[in-house]
Amino acid sequence: MNEEHSQEDAVTVTGLRYAFDRTGTAVDGLDLTVRSGEVFGLLGPNGAGKTTAIRCVTTLLPVPAGMVRVFGHDVTTDRMAVRRLLGYVPQQLSADGGLTGRENVALFARVFDVPRRERADRVAQALQAVGLAEAADRMASTYSGGMVRRLELAQALVSAPRLLILDEPTIGLDPIARTGVWDHIMAIRAASGMTVLVTTHYMDEADQYCDRVALMHQGRVRALGTPRGLTDDLRARLGGDATPTLEDVFRDVAGSGLDDQGKGGEFRDVRRTRRTASRVG
């Protein structure tokens, strides 16, 4: 049974389009395949459409055009099956400040139908796995940004997801907290072999942690490959001895439109993150 699953792709997106009433097209014909077991990075500047695409994969948004499958299940017709396979950490910092860390995780154990007899142990293991065992019984409103993110990771992991979806997991965190979040993600992934789909606009993180990346710009994938492969290709094309970074690859594929796009996406992201941060603690 396991072999059969590991052959199957974790996510298949074909021709996905999504347009908002107010701001127009956000995802414009996205094609994407995430293989089972890999860490796949969806990269792009703010406003590229990463979050919108992720929200279609997680069943939060409908799929008006195109097709999205998660381990073979269509996200429009087989929502519940898809949701059972997913762990999701949204872009916005979102833990319930009126509950303790442990209670926050226990809620997710309950809504994923973890039986009562193993609930406490499972919750404890999830908190342990993200390094929050000590702080588990403090109110989440007293957590730092990095701790809230790790708490959210624990919430996502308590149901043993086969696909972990992280939307800008390190946005707004200081460098040490960023490393902390990634270290926990990679450790758990090494143990469980789960697939990770992560969006980020930090190219250095993608370079370091992702097996493959897709560079997204204005709603479409502009380049796809391993971080190493993409930079090597660009070097071969440009000649010269300087080693290009992923960021250079990005400037190359996105062209000059990179600096003036966004339609206010950047501003909204920052505002949203701040608003939560002040609410949570």
């Binding site: 142990d121 293991q125 342990q128 796995a129 992991l157 149901s159 043993a160 086969r162 450790a187 143990a191």
Partner: peptide, 29 residues
Amino acid sequence: MSAAPAAPRPASADADGLELLLVPPRSRP
């Protein structure tokens, strides 16, 4: 501290204290 329950033990050596996180809960009817 956490007593290991009678779940099938995963093969991975890194899984100490994580074993429950490797098994998805059964879905309810």
